Computed example of a mutant assay.
Amino acid sequence: MKHISTLTALLAALTLSGAHAQNPVQVKVQLKWFPQAQFAGFFVAQAKGYYKAEGLDVQFLPTGDQSPIQTVATGTADFGTTWITDLLTARQQGIPVVHIAQLFQKSGYTLVALKSQGLKGPADFKGKRVGVWPSGNEYPAVALLKKYGLTTSLDSTVSNPSVQAVTYPFDPSIVFPDKVDLVSAMTYNEVDQIVGLGYPLDKLQIFHASDYGINLLEDLMFSTERTLSSSNFKGSGLSGKEVAARLVRATIKGWNYAVKNQKEAVSIVLVNCGNTCKGSGSRSSASSHQTWQMAEVAKLYNAGPTLKGMAGYLDPATYKANVTLLKSLGILKSDPTASAVDYSVWEMATGKKAMK
C-alpha cells in the first residue's frame, strides 16, 4: 500500500509539473526602472528557468518616470518593485498596495557634490541647490534635509526655503554640476555616471543617506490586497498568495545566484537591456557600467537579514525605524495598518517563520 500511495503521489506531482509546463500562469511584474543590473536577480531567475519551474510565465514591464505603484494599483501589472517610502505614502493615500518581500537591505541613496565646494555634511547644504527625482523618488532627500532642519522649495507652504530643490529626470548630466550644487545619485547607477562625466571619485564628496540615519529601504516586491486575496489567480486554480510566494521564491533564488556569479549575471542583464545599460562619457560601455552596478547592488542585497540566511525578509526593527523616521518628518501622518506588510507570502516562499 505504501508503494502504491508513493507512486500515486509521484504521478500527481508529474501531472502537476506537466500542467505547469503546458499552461504556465501569466504574471506581469512592473520594474521600477528600465532593465539594468538593479534587477539582475529577476533576469537571472528568468534565464535560469526558475520562474518556469514554479509554473510561472513572467513578463517584466519596464518603466520610466512613472511610479510602479500606479501600474500595479490599476491592474496593468500584478506585482512590482518600489521603495518603502513610495509604498507607505501610497497606503496613506488609500491605495491598497502590500509589501511582500524586501530585496535590498540597505539604502543606496546618496547626494553627490564636488569636493571643491567644501561641504562637510548636511548642515552645510543651506542655501544650496539640490537635484532630486520626481514621482516619490525625492523622499530620501526630503527626509535627510528635514532631519537637519532644512526646508525645500518642494514644500509649497514655505515662503523662503533654505534649500532650492531642482527636479530633474534621472540623468545627472542634465544638471550636474552647473545647475545644482548636490545631485541625487544611487551608488549603483548615477555615481558611476558622474564619474563617466569626467569627475573621478577622488574629486567627489559623496553623502550616503544611511550614514546620517536615513536608511529608507529601497527595492522591495509588492502587490495589492486584491491580488493577494484572490482565490483563483487569473483562473489558474492557484490563490494570489501562492502565485506571489512562487514569484518571490524564484526571485530570491535568482538574486542569490546573481550575487555569487556576478560576471554571468551581467551577461544575462546585457541581453535584456538596450541603451539604458550604458553609463555616461568615459563609462559609456554597457558592460563596464553594468559590472559596476552589479557589484554595488550586491552590497545592498547582501546585508542585514540576507547575511542571516533570510533573504527577502523585511526586518521588523528596520521597518519600524523607517516608519518612525517618516512620521517624525511629517511624511507619514500615522502608523500604517498591519495589512501594509504581508509576511505570510515570504513564509510560504521560504518555509521559514517571520519574527514579527
Score class of each variant (00 low, 15 high):
H208V: 00
F207M: 10
S280I: 05
G213N: 09
Y212F: 15
Y257V: 09
L238N: 12
K234P: 06
Y212A: 04
R226E: 10
L228Q: 02
W255P: 07
V271I: 12
N189Y: 02
A245T: 09
C273R: 00
N256Q: 15
L217Y: 12
C273M: 10
G274W: 02
N272V: 01
E225T: 13
K263T: 15
T276N: 11
N275Q: 06
K260M: 13
G235L: 07
I194E: 08
S280T: 01
A245F: 02
L216D: 06
L216N: 03
Q193R: 15
Y257P: 03
Y188S: 13
V191R: 10
S184G: 02
N272Q: 13
G274D: 12
P200N: 11
E242K: 11
K241A: 14
R246A: 09
S239A: 11
L197Q: 13
G237T: 14
G254H: 11
Q262F: 04
S239D: 06
S229E: 07
T187N: 11
D219N: 14
F207L: 12
Q193K: 15
E218S: 15
W255T: 09
R246Y: 07
T187L: 09
V269L: 09
K260F: 02
Q262N: 11
V248T: 13
L228T: 01
G281A: 02
S280A: 09
Q193C: 06
L247G: 07
T276D: 08
K260H: 08
L220F: 08
V259D: 06
R226G: 00
V259M: 14
V269F: 07
V243L: 05
G274P: 00
Y257K: 09
Y257S: 10
I214V: 15
V266G: 03
I206Q: 04
F207C: 01
V183I: 10
A245Q: 11
I214Y: 04
S184D: 10
T276E: 10
S280N: 02
V271Q: 15
M186P: 00
I214H: 03
N232P: 01
G198T: 09
Q262M: 14
F207P: 01
V191D: 06
N256D: 15
N256H: 12
S239H: 08
N232M: 04
G281V: 02
R226I: 00
S267D: 15
T227Y: 02
E242Q: 14
L204G: 06
K203A: 13
F222A: 03
S280M: 07
V191G: 05
D219C: 09
S231F: 00
N232S: 06
Y257A: 13
V269Q: 09
A258M: 12
G198A: 08
N215G: 10
T224I: 01
V269A: 07
L247H: 10
G235E: 12
K203Q: 15
A258E: 12
G254R: 10
Q262S: 14
I252A: 07
G198E: 12
S229V: 00
C277W: 01
N261P: 11
I206V: 14
N275M: 04
L220S: 14
E218W: 06
L220I: 14
A209T: 13
